[in-house]
């Protein structure tokens, strides 16, 4: 039996979460292959081949794979699936679009966002916005799953796997790529940032969100995050929402500014190593998950904090 990892990349760089997926795949003690679909993603392919523990990389090039449309990715995986007993990827908007399609085509269940892999195809995952952990067993012939990246260490880049080129099945002609908008930012990517500065509705406006939080984030080299309330109010863009239905982060330091701490939000940040909360309301639930709480007016203390950091 062999494990297949669906690699996420942007056409050039391999997503660091692939290294976490490789660590997760080692739970089966079997050969690990990584699939790099795209249209000439040679650098990402080489990076995949350098991950320790990877035996083979399958590179598939086709013009219709350029934008990694889920329908095409799923058909490709199914076309090579007979060699694999486990198909997995790190949980992201890319994998959760494509892998359920693969599972249905293979007539097997899928296990989403796995926190822990136990023996005998048994998995721990969370439900109800992380309030309950379930342990489930899958007896399906092929295991299809996504893993919760931050729960697995990144495998080292000390490997040297062989690269094989494989042909893609024909394009799925009922879905056409039109365009994309990627948020331009000099800041690190939210999902893998070492420090995250997050703002809630207490910021009061998009202007304040920017004026209060940006200098702090810049000084710390941090990514910016936001609560759903702040996003819905228009203070921050959608793609920086942290929580159950947004991005899940686990940085070394998470600074929550004016965040109340609804369970839907804490689901997205509670694996952070150190949590700092700044909120005027001493009873805000965010203090129950914070290592250090500062009850104060954020408009006073955030600039003071920014100034005090070297």
């Amino acid at each position: 039996m062999t494990i297949l990892i669906l690699a996420e990349h942007d056409g050039v760089q391999l997503n660091p979460s692939v290294q976490q997926a490789v660590t997760a795949a080692k739970a089966w003690n079997s050969a690990i292959h990584v699939l790099v679909a795209g249209n000439g993603a040679d650098a990402a392919t080489k990076q995949a081949a350098s991950i320790h523990g990877v035996e083979g990389v399958i590179q598939v090039n086709a013009s219709h794979l350029e934008n990694l449309i889920a329908e095409d990715v799923a058909n490709l995986i199914v076309s090579i699936s007979k060699d694999y007993s486990v198909i997995l990827a790190a949980h992201s908007s890319f994998s959760k679009n494509a892998l359920p399609r693969v599972a249905a085509l293979l007539d097997v269940a899928m296990i989403s966002d796995v926190l822990e892999i136990k023996a005998n195809n048994t998995y721990v995952r969370s439900i109800y916005a992380g309030n309950v952990l379930t342990t489930v067993l899958s007896s399906d012939a092929v295991q299809v799953l996504t893993i919760h990246g931050s729960n697995f260490n990144a495998a080292a880049l000390t490997g040297n796997a062989t690269i094989a080129l494989v042909d893609a099945p024909p394009a799925f002609d009922k879905t056409q790529w039109k365009s994309e908008i990627r948020s331009q930012s000099d800041r690190p990517a939210l999902s893998s940032a070492k420090i995250v500065v997050s703002g809630g509705r207490s910021l009061g406006s998009a202007e304040h969100f920017e004026k209060v939080l940006s200098p702090l984030a810049s000084k710390l080299g941090a990514a910016l995050g936001a609560t759903r309330a702040a996003v819905d109010a228009g203070y921050a863009p959608n793609d920086i929402q942290v929580g159950q239905t947004g991005v899940v982060v686990a940085p070394e330091l998470y600074i929550a500014v004016g965040v109340s701490g609804a369970i839907q939000h804490t689901y997205g940040m509670r694996d952070s190593k150190v949590v700092v909360a700044i909120n005027q309301d001493p009873d805000a639930p965010i203090f129950q998950v914070a290592d250090y709480g500062l009850v104060a007016d954020l408009f006073d203390v955030v600039p003071a904090l920014t100034a005090a950091i070297q």
Binding site: N67, I69, S92, S93, F94, T175, Q176, W177, K178, S179, E180, I181, R182, S183, A189, L190, S191, N238, D239, V247
Partner: peptide
């Protein structure tokens, strides 16, 4: 809505 932005499909 995808990680880091949006994409449009027909």
């Amino acid at each position: 809505e995808v990680d880091g932005g949006t994409e449009t499909l027909a």
